[in-house]
Simulated scan of single mutants.
Amino acid sequence: MENKKLHVLAFGAHADDVEIGMGGTIAKLASEGKRIGICDLTDADLSSNGNVTLRKEEAAQAAEILNVEVRTSLGFPDRGLFQKEQYIREIAALIRAYKPQLVFAPYFEDRHPDHGNCARLVEEAVFSAGIKKFQTDGENMPHRVERVYFYMINGFHNPEFTIDISAFIDKKLSALRAYKSQFEKTDDSVDTPLVNGYIETVEARERMFGKLVGVTYAEGFKTKVPILMNRDLIGE
């Protein structure tokens, strides 16, 4: 593992989770010179469509579209993201290696159990990574993440904050379309919720979030801690 300090490390249970929830935000931050990493906890080996090799190729293409610096997978078993000490240690080791300021994970409330379980594992690992005596393989110097935020995948929840992605919606949609095995219906594909207008649904959600805050498109996020505003509420 090449140690490269990141501004943001976003975790997903499967490749395409992060792009669905915050692809526009990643593209926006990358355009500002921020270093972004994505970690998929599984190789999505139980996906109804596609296969591990194809999904890895699609994930690499999506990461390139979004200008992500690091993309990796921990290879945990698909549908096996349970609270195991070894999983927490491996995630914590990754956090210590890349020392992100911010960590993102899926929001807990989602129709897919792996997404909520991913969030719980990441939250445990973030806490453990900051404990000096907590042992991991490799880097054992503690690292405290400044904030953990949660993005939405399948849900439409009331966000605590939003990020304007109006200028980056095309990049987000392009990154999603890189996952042809998941979002394009073919004669051989299994009929899943993803192949029946899913990308259009995501786009509509971001348009709705944008409408709520007066922009064209926005991504919504959840947080367990209040947001501190470092500017005057009312300008001159």
Rank of each mutant, 00 (worst) to 15 (best):
L74R: 05
N51G: 10
I91E: 09
A62I: 02
R89D: 08
E32K: 15
D78H: 05
F82A: 11
L81S: 00
S31A: 13
L46N: 14
E64V: 07
L29H: 10
A27T: 08
I65P: 00
E32R: 14
I91S: 07
E64N: 13
G50R: 08
Y87L: 05
A62F: 04
R35K: 15
R71E: 01
L94N: 10
A93C: 06
N51D: 15
R79N: 14
V68L: 05
G24Y: 00
T53C: 11
Q61A: 15
G37Y: 03
E58M: 07
P77Y: 11
E32N: 11
A60Y: 11
D43N: 15
A59F: 04
L41H: 05
Q86G: 09
G37L: 04
D40L: 03
A59P: 00
R35Y: 09
A59Y: 03
E58I: 08
I26G: 00
V70D: 06
R79E: 12
K34I: 05
S48Y: 14
D40P: 03
F82E: 14
T25F: 01
L41I: 08
Q86R: 14
R89M: 12
S48A: 15
G75E: 04
T42D: 06
A30F: 07
L41T: 01
I38P: 01
Q61R: 15
K56V: 09
R35H: 11
A92H: 03
L46K: 15
S73A: 12
E32A: 13
N67V: 05
F76N: 02
V70C: 08
F76M: 12
T25N: 00
R79Q: 13
A30K: 05
N49E: 01
L94Y: 08
A59V: 06
A62H: 00
A30E: 03
R35G: 03
G75L: 06
D78P: 07
A60Q: 14
T42C: 09
E32Q: 15
I38E: 07
Q61S: 13
T53P: 00
L74F: 09
R71V: 03
Q61E: 15
K28W: 00
A62K: 01
I26V: 13
A93F: 00
I38V: 14
Q61G: 04
